[in-house]
Amino acid sequence: MDKIPVALLIGASSESLIAIAYAKKLGLRVVAFDINPTAPGLKEADISYNEDISNPNKIIAILERDGLIPAIILPVPIGRCLNTIGALNDYYNLNGFSYKMADICTDKLKFATALADNGGLGSLRDIKFDIFDPNSNHNKLKFPLIIKPRFGSGSKDTIVISNLDELKNITQNIKFTKMNFLIEEFIDGLEYGIDAAIINGEFHHILLRQKLLTPLPYRQAIGYISIDEIPFISSYIQKVITKLNIDNCLLHADIITKDNRAFIIELSTRPSGHYLSKFIEITTGINPTKEWINKSLNLPYNFKPKFRKNTIIRYFDFEGDWIAADFDLLKDSLGIIDYRCEINSTLPKVIDGSTIMDRGYAIIQTNSKEQSLINTQKLISNFKRKIDG
């Protein structure tokens, strides 16, 4: 092999394509791994391996066998296999987060425990939690509460339980008896997504997004509204990353605020997924993925937002059979900046990230948050339900 620098890709979903294209533009050879043989990034990479990405030692063996030494691991939105990226960063001494950082962020029990145990300094989470035991006595529990898997992302299998009868029904579901779940206090407040970079232990705010959510009992985001940075939220996240020793990474976090207090739900050492990279760039002028690649290669970079536009990204959360709106007809009047619509089959109920992916989205920009919400609703009202016969 010649000495073209290698950009390693762990997880080659459609959301890796931005990183692949930019790495190629910079002259890097992209080497991709994914267990899914039809993953779009495998086709776009220069060298591809259809392999299990949960085993870093297997990946290291393949790279060494083929004489490939990574100069960078591309930032992509993946779940538990962030541990693999952390282990590879450690092994190759690359610019990026460690295995230890990834492990604490992908294990919700370790994450909650670390933030609750502050040596008498006070909890940084303040949400009561425990391992869910379907066979224990639940009569003393305070409702509502949340059940969520210890491992996983995208709100998968996350359910709000309102009373004891609902909880008893859950205990009859084989899924909740076989898997490792946590049970937590439910905080009823405003929920936000946060995009940032962590450099030398310091939090660098990029964008704060207020969530639009499914009705209970599920908590899947069906849209995000851009808002100005809220100082007490940024200050709180700085305390969290300092406590957990999170450093040298892009950051995606979910939090709830209530009564001017912040409660962290989860935090990941990766860019946000579900088409948010494009939304962030339209809203702030910054593409976190591209800037992190620049930083990792010692090229000029900038994570400071150039502006903050009033934008909203809305996913299509319909259930059943629908005919899409005429985007070409509506885009100028509603301020549709970008969209992708792939509604071509009967749609299931939206309960988590997997059930809303690959339908599409619309990004709308107006002169105010309120107008963006109004225009979004006008767009949604232009979708039509199919009538049989």
Rank of each mutant, 00 (worst) to 15 (best):
Y99E: 02
K108I: 04
A116K: 13
M101K: 12
S98G: 12
I131V: 15
L115Q: 00
K108T: 05
R125V: 13
T106A: 11
D107Y: 11
F111C: 00
D117Q: 12
Y92D: 05
Y92M: 09
T113C: 05
K110Y: 01
N118P: 04
I131L: 12
D103H: 14
F111D: 04
K128Q: 15
N95T: 09
I131A: 11
R125T: 13
G120P: 07
S123M: 07
P134T: 10
G119L: 05
G120E: 10
G96D: 02
A116C: 12
N118M: 10
K110W: 08
P134H: 12
T106H: 07
K110N: 14
N95W: 00
T113W: 02
K128F: 11
K128T: 15
K128M: 14
N95K: 13
K108A: 02
Y99K: 02
S123A: 12
F97W: 03
I127V: 15
D107T: 08
K100Y: 12
G119N: 15
L121S: 15
I104A: 03
L124T: 01
D117G: 03
A116E: 15
K128I: 12
I127C: 07
I104K: 01
N95P: 00
C105K: 01
R125D: 07
N118G: 11
G119R: 13
A102P: 03
A102T: 08
K110V: 09
Y92C: 00
D117V: 09
D130W: 06
L124R: 00
Y99T: 01
N118Q: 13
S123H: 07
K108E: 07
L115S: 05
F111G: 04
G119Q: 09
R125Q: 08
G122T: 02
G120W: 13
C105F: 06
F132L: 00
F97G: 04
L124H: 02
G122P: 01
D117M: 09
Y91Q: 03
N93W: 11
A112T: 08
F111R: 03
D103Y: 14
F111V: 03
F132Y: 08
G120D: 07
D130I: 07
I104M: 06
R125S: 12
D133V: 00
R125C: 09
Y99F: 15
N93T: 14
C105I: 00
F111Y: 01
N95L: 05
Y92W: 03
C105E: 01
K128C: 14
A116P: 09
T106S: 12
L121A: 15
K110T: 02
K128L: 15
R125M: 11
F129Q: 04
T113K: 13
L115V: 02
S98C: 05
F97V: 01
D133C: 06
K108Y: 03
L115M: 09
I104Y: 01
L115H: 05
F129R: 03
S123T: 13
Y99V: 01
A112R: 14
D126V: 08
L109T: 02
G122I: 08
L109D: 08
F111E: 00
D133E: 07
Y92E: 06
F132P: 04
Y91M: 03
A116T: 12
L115K: 00
D126I: 01
T113H: 11
C105D: 02
N118S: 11
